[in-house]
Simulated assay, not measured.
Amino acid sequence: MAVQNPQKPPRRNPWDQSPAVPDPQIRLTHADRDAVAEVLREAYSQGQLDEDEFGDRLDHAMRAKVSADLVPLTADLGVSVSPGGTGNAHGAAGPQQGKGEKEPQLTTDNPVEKVGAAAGHLSAFFLPFLAPLVLLLIGGELSPYLRRQAMEALNFQLFCLVGAIVSLLLVWLVLPALVLVGIFLGWFILPIIAAAGALMGRSWKYPLVYRLIKDN
């Protein structure tokens, strides 16, 4: 009685270098949407997208839920998209994120985003903690730039508050007293610099600040 060998699976073509399709079930993070938004901004500045296309794709990127939702937004720009960052598939403009690389620096040309971000930084003088928190919750889902700057302002104000409380408790020591002076100087100087940068549409990060709230 002859025994039939089980059918072997077809051999994979070693020359097949087609990119793997991202798992459509992977949920996106804010960082994923921000990276795609920066790719779209760069494509718009270089003339790959007109104003209507840019606005429509940016809106879809901010509302995307899973990785498959982002693929059509950048496929014709020569950029591959995967959870955890975007890569340049054919040398197209866009941020590359990976081990040892800096996160993309978000910028903007939108005057509303500029004024909103500047107000978040200057809120240290009139509505500390509350104003950047409101900007983060309300405007953050529509503008990655505004969310990033509101988060920076909120982290800076929280860090100064915690640092001032600890320094006051240990003010009888020399070093905490110097730290307290530095915190007060930073509170009055750095928000003005940050607001000026925001009005120019630049990405600002406060120096020497431990960020209690992180953008996951």
Score class of each variant (00 low, 15 high):
residue 3 V to K: 11
residue 5 N to S: 13
residue 8 K to Y: 06
residue 10 P to E: 13
residue 10 P to F: 14
residue 11 R to P: 04
residue 12 R to Q: 14
residue 12 R to M: 13
residue 16 D to K: 06
residue 17 Q to Y: 11
residue 17 Q to C: 06
residue 18 S to A: 13
residue 22 P to V: 03
residue 22 P to Q: 04
residue 24 P to F: 01
residue 26 I to N: 10
residue 27 R to I: 12
residue 28 L to D: 05
residue 29 T to F: 10
residue 31 A to D: 10
residue 31 A to K: 14
residue 34 D to V: 05
residue 34 D to H: 06
residue 35 A to Q: 03
residue 39 V to K: 03
residue 39 V to E: 02
residue 39 V to I: 10
residue 41 R to L: 12
residue 43 A to E: 10
residue 44 Y to S: 12
residue 45 S to Y: 13
residue 47 G to Q: 09
residue 48 Q to K: 12
residue 49 L to V: 04
residue 49 L to D: 02
residue 49 L to I: 07
residue 52 D to E: 09
residue 53 E to V: 06
residue 55 G to S: 13
residue 56 D to E: 15
residue 57 R to Q: 07
residue 58 L to F: 04
residue 59 D to K: 09
residue 61 A to N: 05
residue 62 M to V: 05
residue 62 M to I: 03
residue 64 A to Y: 06
residue 67 S to Q: 11
residue 67 S to Y: 04
residue 69 D to P: 03
residue 70 L to H: 01
residue 70 L to C: 06
residue 73 L to P: 00
residue 73 L to Q: 01
residue 77 L to Q: 04
residue 77 L to K: 01
residue 78 G to I: 06
residue 81 V to A: 11
residue 82 S to P: 04
residue 85 G to C: 07
residue 86 T to I: 12
residue 87 G to L: 12
residue 88 N to L: 11
residue 90 H to N: 13
residue 93 A to D: 14
residue 93 A to E: 14
residue 95 P to T: 10
residue 97 Q to E: 15
residue 97 Q to V: 14
residue 97 Q to G: 02
residue 98 G to R: 13
residue 98 G to L: 10
residue 99 K to Y: 07
residue 103 E to C: 00
residue 104 P to C: 09
residue 106 L to G: 01
residue 109 D to M: 10
residue 110 N to Q: 11
residue 114 K to N: 02
residue 117 A to L: 00
residue 118 A to H: 00
residue 119 A to F: 13
residue 120 G to V: 01
residue 121 H to R: 00
residue 124 A to M: 14
residue 125 F to D: 06
residue 127 L to Q: 02
residue 128 P to K: 04
residue 131 A to H: 01
residue 132 P to Q: 02
residue 133 L to E: 04
residue 134 V to F: 10
residue 134 V to H: 02
residue 136 L to A: 08
residue 141 E to Y: 05
residue 141 E to N: 13
residue 142 L to A: 15
residue 143 S to V: 03
residue 146 L to P: 04
residue 146 L to K: 01
residue 148 R to H: 08
residue 148 R to N: 12
residue 148 R to D: 15
residue 149 Q to P: 09
residue 149 Q to I: 01
residue 154 L to G: 00
residue 155 N to E: 02
residue 155 N to T: 07
residue 156 F to P: 00
residue 158 L to R: 00
residue 158 L to A: 08
residue 159 F to R: 03
residue 161 L to E: 07
residue 162 V to W: 09
residue 162 V to M: 07
residue 163 G to H: 03
residue 171 V to T: 11
residue 178 L to K: 01
residue 179 V to C: 09
residue 183 I to Y: 01
residue 184 F to Y: 10
residue 188 F to S: 14
residue 191 P to V: 00
residue 192 I to T: 08
residue 197 G to R: 10
residue 201 G to C: 05
residue 202 R to M: 09
residue 202 R to D: 10
residue 205 K to W: 05
residue 206 Y to F: 15
residue 206 Y to H: 07
residue 211 R to Y: 02
residue 212 L to W: 09
residue 215 D to I: 11
residue 216 N to H: 14
residue 216 N to D: 07
